[in-house]
Design a protein around this nucleic acid. Structure first.
Lengths: 239, 239
DNA sequence: CGCGGACTTGATGTCCCTCAAGCCGCGTGG
DNA sequence: CCACGCGGCTTGAGGGACATCAAGTCCGCG
């Protein structure tokens, strides 16, 4: 059940059998949500963190004019709100993008981990810092990259992150989301996302159709996006 | 020396005398840097974290065309790279924006804190999560707010964050940076920042001149920016 | 006194938004 | 079985926000 989490962690650091056991012992029962459900509203007091097992979920903020900005897209193996352990409530909401399977990890179990497994605690801290690194890359994309490069960059990021979880190859991956959701990630309108997707397709770089990303030319796609995976910290050194 | 850090922490949680002592014992010697110096380049292996005592420093990423995006602006009392404790190296660089005074906190001292002061460790973890929350708000600004609102929002954010450190009032604060640096925070050109500043001034909301932000009408400024300070977590509850 | 960096302003250009229409696939119900 | 509605996708025309290019001003400093 926590296999994808372990894959994600072990892509960055050693996790002992003992630590693995501690993680397994920490997870609660399985919960299923249909698509498009906000299951954690901003500001709500939280007592557990959400580990995504299957599906796609998004962190987002609403604006007064009804627009929405997604601040991070989560893939299986991600903690969607590990940071709620120290924050207690969130400044943003969390919704399912596709039908999803999650498990809850009570904060008291996390607390126990911080007390009994200092290295694992550091790894968990690292995971929240990894989210922050992803945020920073999105800041750069939104601030300085054109719509085309920004979209290409997101496809590159998801290819790597899903790849770690065993859910993507160099050829592509399932991404069953609408162009509107994509637009909410990219700070664009769905109309413009549509035009950008057309151009990426016509350039022979990547195709996004019927819930699937098909990568046609990864090297060129990465060059276009100026994609440097360093921010995903996919090296293995002690944390 | 770490007074502003303590102010920042105590705006969010109780810090015991014991914990205060542990923090004081952790800081190394004082270092001074002139303005506009990158003292932590991206990718460099780090063995200590940087606490800003005086001045302004920025986290930023360079792009291939020579442009730059600042991902966070740090004020006195902020750790600029507390996250390097778990990341080991950074995905971005850190530079001084104004002449600055910093102290280094060796990672081994942070490690000792995590082992001997679990609550303080949680507070430090919280601090890195607070940075992530600020990143998210910048994502929202860059993705969905107009240049005018975005600029107003940044002035509101800095007013609060500097206020906690005792460096701002409701009337304004020192911000000795150029319009170009402001533009690098806001994902704009300095030319357009200039026009935006003019409009904010003419609307009677805020004035930015000769290194100082003078707030003329804080309530209206906040309303324009749709500024909701929840993301700065300025309530006091146990972490 | 002259130089350079920061700021300011105007003219023009472009990227992306807005508005609008049409299409397609799918589920629902007569 | 087809009509219809609806959400998602697609495309065109026009507009607006911000970028680019280009001067020119202001001011501190050697």
């Amino acid at each position: 059940m926590i296999d994808r989490l372990l894959m994600k962690l072990r892509a960055r650091d050693e996790i002992s059998a003992d630590e693995e056991e501690a993680l397994r012992a920490a997870v609660g029962e399985i919960v299923r949500h249909p698509a498009d459900v906000t299951f954690i509203p901003a500001g709500k007091l939280l007592h557990s963190s959400t580990l995504l097992i299957e599906g796609l979920i998004a962190r987002y903020k609403d604006l007064s004019n009804g627009e929405r900005q997604i601040t991070e897209l989560h893939v299986p193996g991600d903690f969607a709100d590990l940071h709620s352990f120290t924050l207690k409530f969130l400044d943003h909401s969390i919704m399912t993008v596709t039908p999803s399977v999650i498990v809850q990890v009570p904060h008291e179990k996390l607390q126990a981990i911080t007390e009994n497994h200092p290295h694992l605690a550091r790894v968990l801290w690292f995971m929240t810092n990894l989210d922050a690194a992803i945020h920073r890359e999105w800041v750069v994309s939104l601030g300085r990259r054109s719509a085309l490069k920004r979209t290409a960059h997101l496809f590159c990021e998801l290819q790597l992150r899903l790849g770690i979880a065993g859910l993507a190859t160099e050829r592509g991956y399932a991404l069953p989301i609408t162009q509107t959701v994509l637009a909410e990630c990219l700070g664009l309108t769905s109309v413009h996302v549509n035009r950008v997707l057309k151009e990426l397709r016509e350039r022979g770089l990547v195709e996004f159709r019927s819930g699937r990303v098909t990568i046609l030319d990864l090297p060129t796609l990465r060059r276009l996006a100026e994609f440097d995976p360093a921010y995903l910290y996919l090296d293995k050194r002690p944390r």
